[in-house]
Simulated assay, not measured.
Amino acid sequence: MTDLQHRLSHHFRVGSGEGFQLNQIDPGSTDHARVSDKQAAQVALADGVERMAALQDKLYAQDRWALLLVFQAMDAAGKDGTIKHVMSGVNPQGCQVSSFKAPSAIDLDHDYLWRANQCLPERGRIGIFNRSYYEETLVVRVHPELLARQTIPDQLVDHNIWQHRFRDIRHYEDYLGRNGVVVRKFFLHVSKQEQKRRFLERLDNPEKNWKFSAADIRERAHWDAYMEAYEQMIRHTATDAAPWYVVPADHKWFTRLVVADAVIDTLESLNLAYPTVGDAARRELAEAHRQLLEE
């Protein structure tokens, strides 16, 4: 992005989960931003969005790589807003967003990666998962009764199931990478205090009432269990090829800068370029040009 936040995202990148602790990242941090206020952040983000759009155009034209962006967070952490603002300049034709709610009866009759696999981005496109297969190591872990509904054979559900799922996911993401699907994962790390403030704002503002659900309060009661589940998830699934970015989310402007920088950094690493035109094709273009001029 701009020089103001060059490689800002590297400060929050977790390429190896060994020894990772969630308390290493302050949800309220704005360190390394190098901007003094929201207005400067908006200018920097606009510059980043413009750069991202140019890179995405090359990604689409080259039609070799695909980019999968995975977003996980507690309620009110700002996933929707981050996706909206960071991806605002991307051509919709080259981007697809998939939101993963509670699994359907059809989903539950398949393995837990099945429905995600149906939504993977095509080559040349950016795919966005708003929540993802990682819910199977988060909400299902916090609420074991959900695991019982998956009708997995009893002998396969034991105390090792979470380690097995972490291993499955690492192998799955490794497989995607070997097939040209680059995976980048974002945990928007909001504090419990900021979540409370945002919940109250949704309740106090009639125009935001629709954003609130009673289920949000029920899940908030399990905050500590979720934090432990997120820490374990990152610790066991962060790899150099498919890293996690643990992004401070108490300040939305900062969250968006970090995410945008990570996406740009990833796209730039792919050495994207427009396809070259061979000699035969150039002769065809020249002939087409001649015919048009003679009409």
Rank of each mutant, 00 (worst) to 15 (best):
H143G: 02
E295C: 11
H143P: 00
R165H: 11
G28E: 02
V246E: 01
G89F: 10
D224N: 14
A41S: 06
V263L: 08
L120N: 12
I126V: 15
V247K: 05
N160F: 13
D26Y: 04
N117C: 15
A221H: 14
F186N: 00
Q72D: 09
Q193L: 11
H289M: 11
R149V: 07
Q5D: 05
E284H: 10
S132W: 07
W253Q: 05
Q96K: 15
V49P: 01
Y230T: 01
E207D: 14
Q150Y: 12
Y274W: 10
V14P: 00
Q155F: 14
L270M: 10
A260I: 01
E122N: 02
L146Y: 09
Q56M: 05
D279N: 08
R167M: 03
T82Q: 05
P92Y: 14
D109A: 15
H171C: 06
D261P: 05
H222M: 14
T255H: 05
T151H: 13
G94C: 13
R115Y: 15
A116V: 15
E231R: 01
H10M: 03
D31I: 01
A273Y: 08
E136C: 04
T266W: 01
Q72V: 04
A215Q: 11
Q96A: 15
V90G: 03
L69G: 02
K192Y: 13
D279H: 08
Y112K: 10
A280L: 13
D279P: 11
T276H: 14
R184E: 04
V190M: 02
D31Q: 10
F212W: 07
V49I: 08
V183Q: 00
A61F: 06
V259F: 03
V157T: 04
G19A: 06
N130G: 07
G127N: 11
D75G: 13
V43S: 07
T137F: 04
L4D: 01
T30V: 12
N130L: 06
G17E: 04
L267K: 06
Q42P: 00
H10Y: 02
T276K: 14
E295T: 14
Y133H: 12
I234Q: 03
R290C: 03
A242W: 02
F71I: 04
R131M: 00
A66S: 15
Q56V: 05
P206M: 10
Y172W: 08
P243E: 05
E295H: 14
D261T: 07
L292A: 09
L67C: 08
V49M: 01
V14L: 01
A73S: 13
P153W: 12
H159N: 08
H10L: 06
Q24K: 05
S88M: 09
V140N: 02
R198P: 07
E228T: 09
E194A: 06
L22I: 08
Y112Q: 08
M233A: 11
D111Y: 15
D168E: 09
V181H: 10
M233L: 15
K192M: 11
D216S: 10
E268F: 03
A40T: 01
S9H: 06
L108A: 14
Q39W: 04
Y112S: 07
H159G: 01
A238Y: 02
Y226A: 02
